[in-house]
Amino acid sequence: MFPVHRPRRLRKTEILRKMVRETTLTPQNFIYPMFVVPGRGVKNPISSMPDCFQESVDEAVKTAKDVFSLGIPAIILFGIPEHKDEKASSAYDENGIVQTAVKAIKDALPDLIVITDVCLCEYTSHGHCGIIKNGKIDNDSTLELLALEAVSHARAGADIVAPSDMMDGRVGRIRKMLDDEGFSDVVILSYAAKYASAFYGPFREAAQSAPAFGDRRSYQMDPANRREALREVALDIEEGADIVMVKPALAYLDIISDVKNNFSVPVAAYNVSGEYSMIKAAAQLGWLNEEAVMMEVLTAIKRAGADLILTYFAKKAAKLLNS
């Protein structure tokens, strides 16, 4: 009882606050997302995501060097191809945009962890994450193409492949084909609990992946569901996922916490484009302190249980932490 109990004693100075801080962020917690496009010398600003760009491979190598110099251990690559078709053939082309970027970045920075997004939405003419049959996304025929894509990324030098499509059984199919092709040491980071979220809007501009019709609610999770996330995560781990991800992060901190408390594998969370853009927009209007809100958000995601945070703030946050 007061006056014996005075919790404010431990908040008296910044040094004391740091001594007893329960959650600590470091650049090692971050993964930086990058968008690669064909061409040379290309660095296109993404209008809805300030300070983010679509970059040609040569420019992406420069950015990757900057990222690694800040102590950030990993990047994740999203590709925007020249050619799109109904079978997403550019996704598993050995000379595709992501495959080319992986080779160039690993040649320049062999110690940087390169993760690749494994999905078809950027490569299909209709913008959906799977093959369409009779007007619907056909789960089982999509699995083969996802596995081919993952193997092509591994062959190019990817350290980690990250299936984000939310097809049933895709982790198991990818794991089997990776193993059969001699890539048993390639890690699978599964988008295990990926929700059908309205927070993805700016990303769809960046990756040019908006669906041409309908939506993705038949394969991405219902935002109202919590227990289902644990089922999805358990299935992916059973199929061979090494790391599991919750996406988005801010509106799903309870899911991150549930996954952390129920499973023993590393947990990633994606601080998605809409979460990023809201903060950037409010800061530009002078309504928020960008740096303070950025660090509060990233700390909250880690406090909820994320070991790894995919965030467009990675470079800015790492510079702040390093200073």
Rank of each mutant, 00 (worst) to 15 (best):
D258N: 14
I309G: 00
A101I: 00
V265D: 15
K87R: 09
G286D: 00
T63S: 13
R17F: 11
I105L: 10
L109P: 03
A249P: 05
A251N: 13
A306G: 06
A306I: 06
N134P: 08
F213D: 10
V161E: 06
D140A: 09
C129L: 03
M245R: 06
G240I: 11
Y191S: 05
L120H: 04
G182Y: 05
P7L: 01
F213Y: 08
R173Y: 06
P163E: 03
V67N: 13
A317N: 05
T24A: 14
R6F: 14
L230K: 00
C129Y: 02
G274I: 01
R231G: 09
Y200F: 14
Y270M: 10
A91F: 04
N261E: 15
V57H: 10
A193N: 09
D138N: 15
P202W: 09
A198F: 05
L253C: 11
L10P: 11
E296N: 09
G201P: 02
I72V: 11
I188H: 04
G96E: 08
N225D: 02
E205W: 14
F78V: 13
M49C: 15
G169D: 07
E149R: 07
K260S: 02
M177L: 15
D117E: 15
K62C: 03
L235H: 10
M1E: 12
T24Q: 13
K247R: 13
D107W: 01
V186T: 12
F68H: 15
I309L: 00
T100R: 11
